[in-house]
Design a protein around this nucleic acid. Structure first.
Lengths: 113, 113
DNA sequence: CAAGTGCTTAACCAATGGGTTAATAATTGC
DNA sequence: GCAATTATTAACCCATTGGTTAAGCACTTG
């Protein structure tokens, strides 16, 4: 729902958060599991997760069997939205090709007549 | 570890810089032209351009006719690299579908025998 | 119910980042 | 040569950010 480009990019601009995303790519993980994969403290991971959560890149769920546990998983929406923006920007390349073609055409037509 | 991706994302995480990128989408522009499109000062724009330049998202060129002038244009490489990373992450979705199918298959096979 | 577990929040600190105005640089044109 | 133009760098402020340790919360378990 919250797919603000600003928050998405700010969230992904941090290497630790990107590594978290890469870990979550392979499936849902608990904060403790993520913590174990890094050298920084658990509170630091917790705050990274909050940033990712607020940006909508991940979502948190409780675990039925043990209410102390939480599980984080990826959400596709913000990633997709970012890809859409990049596609739209990257079209500058084809646009320039198009503009060049249009220009070439115009010139050749002028030369004919 | 600070990767290229890091600088690309950090550069794009700022709304002013994203708007600059969108303006450059329509063709090369001079710093002065960009400045005119914003309400912030010229030095601020200059520094945004430096960030974009260092990340490789834009490149600077001089203008032959007047050496005081400079022109900025987009470079496709960093955008493309970022898209590649996002594609690789976004595959988590199809991967999960695959994992689900594998799981369903395993279950149904157990039920047969 | 007391101790332990899993995670988040609070408080603090150093570094970074984006904005400002003033100063510099380089070049042009009268 | 001197004033005007175009852009960048310097110096400074304040807000934000990422890390730390200590404290707090919500459970579970012996």
């Amino acid at each position: 729902m919250v797919t603000d480009l600003d928050e998405t990019l700010a969230a992904l601009a941090d290497p630790t958060r990107r590594r978290i995303v890469e870990l979550l790519r392979d499936g849902p993980r608990r904060p403790g599991e993520l913590s174990a994969a890094f050298e920084i403290s658990a509170p630091a991971i917790s705050r990274h997760l909050r940033v990712l959560r607020r940006s909508g890149i991940v979502e948190e769920r409780g675990v039925d069997s043990d209410a102390r546990l939480r599980v984080y998983r990826l959400r596709p929406e913000p990633i997709v939205a970012l890809q859409a923006w990049l596609d739209q920007v990257q079209a500058f390349w084809t646009d320039q090709l198009g503009a060049f073609k249009a220009h070439a055409e115009r010139v050749s037509r002028e030369n004919e007549s």
